[in-house]
Computed example of a mutant assay.
Amino acid sequence: MNITTIIFDLDDTLYSPDTGIWNLIRDRIDSYMQIKLGYPSDKVSYMRETYFKKYGTTLRGLQTEHHIDAADYLEYVHDIPVNKILQKNQVLIEILSKIPQRKVIFTNSDRWHTQRVLSTLGIDQFFTQIIDILDISPYCKPMPEAFEIALNNFCITKLDECLMIDDSYRNIKAAQSMGLSTIWVSSQNNQDPEKDLIRINNILELDPLLVY
């Protein structure tokens, strides 16, 4: 692969899902829906998943159905103690330091959460640009429009020179449909229906040779 730019996802990609960060964010989403929108506790999880599947993110679902303020929602759901859960990852620092290509972040989270995660992991210096959920509004991954906005903002014109690394299978498939090379970060073998799909169990398995 003649790769010049690598697009990294953030959550559950640059750190392990075993950290439990998503569980905390999920609980904050449920709390937001109950406290601010009046969803009953026995329905909130179902509706969160329904919006996620239908609209791409729960945020987009709540914006469509309730016209909520995105910034208020993002501040609320990402109000978690990132610095008490994650820590500086020296192995990841060494891996990223050996990869010469331009590295950027494309995430359905917001910039504040992204910067906290990168800083806590000790890897913020490796990324030259962040495209977050507000930058691609009213869209989100895996929507083609979201990718088009991100690629335009990253000034990427040669899609065959771009690699995307993400933990979401649907995001990976969306990237492939646009002509990007991909690496899927997933430890769940039963979710790998394509044998030729490049997959690693976690980001620490990222071999710099894969992206040269």
Results as ranks from 00 to 15, higher is better:
residue 97 S to K: 13
residue 98 K to D: 10
residue 99 I to G: 02
residue 100 P to M: 10
residue 101 Q to F: 06
residue 103 K to T: 11
residue 105 I to R: 07
residue 107 T to Q: 09
residue 109 S to L: 05
residue 111 R to K: 11
residue 111 R to F: 04
residue 111 R to T: 10
residue 112 W to P: 01
residue 113 H to Y: 11
residue 113 H to L: 07
residue 114 T to I: 08
residue 116 R to E: 14
residue 117 V to E: 13
residue 118 L to K: 06
residue 119 S to M: 06
residue 121 L to K: 10
residue 122 G to A: 05
residue 125 Q to V: 15
residue 125 Q to E: 14
residue 126 F to H: 15
residue 126 F to R: 12
residue 127 F to C: 15
residue 127 F to M: 09
residue 127 F to Y: 12
residue 128 T to V: 13
residue 128 T to D: 15
residue 128 T to A: 15
residue 132 D to T: 07
residue 132 D to F: 07
residue 133 I to Y: 11
residue 133 I to R: 04
residue 134 L to K: 09
residue 135 D to G: 14
residue 135 D to S: 03
residue 135 D to P: 04
residue 138 P to D: 13
residue 138 P to V: 05
residue 138 P to M: 04
residue 139 Y to A: 04
residue 141 K to T: 00
residue 141 K to P: 00
residue 141 K to F: 00
residue 142 P to Y: 00
residue 142 P to K: 01
residue 142 P to W: 02
residue 143 M to K: 11
residue 143 M to S: 13
residue 143 M to C: 08
residue 143 M to P: 01
residue 144 P to K: 07
residue 144 P to L: 09
residue 145 E to G: 11
residue 145 E to F: 04
residue 146 A to F: 03
residue 148 E to D: 13
residue 150 A to K: 03
residue 154 F to K: 12
residue 154 F to Q: 11
residue 155 C to R: 13
residue 156 I to G: 00
residue 157 T to Q: 15
residue 157 T to N: 15
residue 157 T to P: 00
residue 161 E to I: 02
residue 162 C to W: 01
residue 162 C to E: 01
residue 162 C to H: 01
residue 164 M to N: 00
residue 164 M to R: 02
residue 166 D to Q: 02
residue 168 S to F: 02
residue 172 I to V: 12
residue 173 K to G: 00
residue 173 K to E: 13
residue 174 A to H: 06
residue 175 A to C: 12
residue 178 M to W: 06
residue 178 M to Y: 03
residue 179 G to V: 10
residue 179 G to P: 04
residue 181 S to G: 02
residue 182 T to L: 10
residue 182 T to E: 10
residue 182 T to S: 15
residue 183 I to W: 09
residue 184 W to S: 01
residue 185 V to G: 14
